Every structure is written in structure tokens, then in C-alpha cells.
Computed example of a mutant assay.
Amino acid sequence: MNTIEPGTQPPDWPGWAVATAICLRFWSRLPVPPLPGESESHAAPDFRAVPRALPFAALVIAAPAALVALGTGLAGLSGLAVAALALTALALTTGAFHEDGLADTADGLFGGHTPEKRLEIMKDSRIGSYGALALGLSLLIRASLIAMILDRAGASAAAAALLAAAPWSRAEGLFLLATQPPARSTGAAAAVGRPSAATARIALALSLVLATGIALTVQLPVAGLMLGFALAHGAAAILSRLARRLIGGQTGDILGAAQQLSEIAIYLGLALALGWGTGLSG
């Protein structure tokens, strides 16, 4: 496995535009043309070099869903319909990348009795009861919270919430990749290399700046955004501890689950803050 020490730079460090394009290719189904100097466009990216640009790629990934939320919200559809359509667009853009990780994580962590059995279950492409329940609850909770944001603050706020949640939720998964050992010596999480904690913190810092700017632009409550980030970091930390205890570390599925939990947490923080404002004004 490729590793680097904190504060060091891997060879052939790509520019921000190239790194963003590589992140787009890895985290989404969006078409990305061959890049300058690239010999194999479908090879696993070297995560020592590219993940600092993940926040920018995440905004692009969430943009179709945000546009759907804005358009259907302004067209007068109900909050739940808007949220369902936006989440559909998001799943199509990512290929349900993170949802798959959440389902496999739920099946593996709760369906096995030994680390080896849990990892075996997580690698199985079939979905079990725990995975189906996790997927259903994730979609239900996210749709309900996005609908609540739209009903309380409008279509632009719902679109902004999708954009604001995208960078930070993915950076939380990246932070686990950087700070937790891999549970397997093979697999996606091990194959892409391990970024330094400093690189993951750069992604988190960029996510904070981008999300705050989006929130200020559409007058989303920044306090709610910060609450959501805190809840997201707490949820990722709990998942990290659970994975470390049950399977010995992180996997690609664990990173996907961290993104899903973090996305829910950010919507929850925004919805709570908007609810407080409504209660105070009432």
C-alpha cells in the first residue's frame, strides 16, 4: 500500500484542475475526458496526490441534484417530491456509490460475528436485511430533512443545502481513510493509497469555506451548518470506532457509510436551526 508521512508531498503532484477531474471520475459517473499525461484513465487514483481537490469535485457532483431541487421547488412541487427527485438525481450522478457502501457496512458490521465474517459479508454484492433497512432509512431521513428545509426556507435553500453537504460529507470519509488503518490489505481503500492527515484537513478546511460561502449567499443559518458539521464529525468518529473494534479498521464501504451519515447530519443541523428560527418568530 502506498503511504506518505504527514507534511510530505508525493511525486508528480497534480494541479488543482487535474486533481479535481480525477476526483470527479472516481466519485461519480460524470464523463471525464483523458487528462494530460495520463496513460490509463480507468486506473485507481493515487490518493496521496489528488484528494485535496475533493471539495471542488463534490460541488460539481451535487450540482445536478441542486438544479433539480431548485427547478422543481420553484415549479411548486411539494417538499417531499422535490427531495425525492433531487436524491434520485444525486444517486444517478454518483452511481449510488455511497449508498452501496452504507448498505454493505450495515450488513457486515451487524450481520457477522467475527471480523473475518463481517469482511466477507461486506464484500458480498447481495444486500441483506440490515443493508436494506439502512438504505431505506437513509433515503427517508434525507428526503424528509431536505423537504423540511425547502418548506421553511424555500427552493434556493434546499438546493444550497445539497451543495453545502456534498464537500464536507465526502471529506469526512477521506479523513477516515487518512487516520484509520485499512481492515484489508487488498480492496479499494487499500489500493488507492493513504493520504496524510494534513491532506484530509485541507479538504475539510476547503469544505468549510465553500459551504459557508454557499450558506451566506442564500441566507441559510450558518449556526445550523456548523451544528451539522459537528454532528457529522461525531457520527464519523463513532462509525470509525465501531469499525476499528469490529473489523480492525476502515474499508471503502466504511468510507461510503461515513459520507451518508455525515450528509444526514448536515441536513439535520440546518433543519434544526431553521426550526428554531421559526419557533422564535412564531
Rank of each mutant, 00 (worst) to 15 (best):
residue 78 S to N: 05
residue 215 A to H: 02
residue 155 A to K: 04
residue 23 C to N: 07
residue 18 V to A: 06
residue 202 I to A: 14
residue 241 R to D: 09
residue 103 A to E: 14
residue 181 P to E: 04
residue 209 V to L: 14
residue 190 A to G: 06
residue 75 A to T: 01
residue 6 P to K: 08
residue 109 L to K: 03
residue 17 A to Q: 02
residue 281 S to I: 14
residue 15 G to K: 00
residue 90 L to Q: 07
residue 247 I to H: 09
residue 176 L to A: 03
residue 67 L to H: 03
residue 234 G to P: 08
residue 277 G to H: 11
residue 46 D to H: 08
residue 180 Q to H: 10
residue 219 Q to Y: 15
residue 76 G to V: 04
residue 77 L to E: 12
residue 94 T to D: 03
residue 54 L to H: 05
residue 199 T to L: 06
residue 53 A to I: 09
residue 186 T to K: 04
residue 155 A to F: 04
residue 7 G to A: 12
residue 139 L to M: 13
residue 278 T to V: 14
residue 125 S to Y: 01
residue 20 T to D: 08
residue 196 S to W: 02
residue 280 L to N: 07
residue 75 A to Y: 05
residue 74 L to T: 10
residue 158 A to C: 04
residue 199 T to R: 01
residue 3 T to H: 14
residue 61 I to F: 02
residue 143 A to Q: 07
residue 126 R to H: 13
residue 30 L to C: 09
residue 169 S to R: 11
residue 58 A to M: 06
residue 98 H to I: 15
residue 162 L to C: 06
residue 164 A to K: 02
residue 80 L to M: 10
residue 4 I to S: 02
residue 218 V to D: 11
residue 159 A to M: 00
residue 264 I to A: 10
residue 248 G to T: 01
residue 185 S to T: 15
residue 69 A to G: 11
residue 255 L to F: 04
residue 96 A to I: 15
residue 199 T to D: 01
residue 38 E to I: 05
residue 8 T to K: 08
residue 73 G to H: 04
residue 109 L to R: 08
residue 158 A to Q: 06
residue 23 C to L: 07
residue 281 S to E: 14
residue 100 D to L: 09
residue 11 P to E: 15
residue 93 T to C: 04
residue 30 L to S: 08
residue 253 D to E: 10
residue 109 L to P: 05
residue 5 E to S: 05
residue 55 P to I: 11
residue 49 A to R: 15
residue 191 A to Y: 04
residue 84 A to K: 03
residue 245 R to C: 10
residue 3 T to Y: 08
residue 87 L to M: 10
residue 271 A to D: 11
residue 35 L to G: 08
residue 16 W to V: 10
residue 68 V to A: 11
residue 55 P to L: 09
residue 160 A to Q: 09
residue 178 A to G: 08
residue 197 A to R: 11
residue 210 L to C: 08
residue 275 G to E: 13
residue 142 R to P: 13
residue 228 G to L: 06
residue 31 P to A: 05
residue 29 R to D: 02
residue 214 I to F: 01
residue 74 L to K: 11
residue 224 G to E: 01
residue 245 R to H: 14
residue 31 P to L: 02
residue 170 R to D: 01
residue 69 A to F: 03
residue 94 T to A: 01
residue 148 M to T: 15
residue 117 K to I: 07
residue 35 L to N: 05
residue 33 P to E: 09
residue 163 L to R: 00
residue 236 A to N: 00
residue 143 A to R: 07
residue 224 G to N: 04
residue 42 H to C: 06
residue 237 A to V: 00
residue 122 M to Y: 01
residue 271 A to F: 05
residue 166 A to I: 10
residue 110 F to E: 08
residue 218 V to Q: 03
residue 33 P to D: 09
residue 250 Q to P: 12
residue 197 A to G: 11
residue 264 I to L: 13
residue 152 R to G: 11
residue 128 G to W: 06
residue 58 A to F: 00
residue 121 I to W: 04
residue 176 L to E: 00
residue 125 S to A: 03
residue 178 A to I: 03
residue 255 L to V: 12
residue 84 A to S: 13
residue 40 E to N: 13
residue 202 I to C: 14
residue 100 D to V: 13
residue 224 G to F: 02
residue 128 G to L: 07
residue 187 G to I: 07
residue 162 L to S: 08
residue 231 L to S: 06
residue 48 R to W: 00
residue 281 S to H: 13
residue 184 R to K: 15
residue 87 L to Y: 03
residue 118 R to N: 09
residue 205 A to P: 05
residue 173 G to E: 11
residue 121 I to L: 13
residue 96 A to Y: 12
residue 179 T to Y: 12
residue 91 A to T: 15
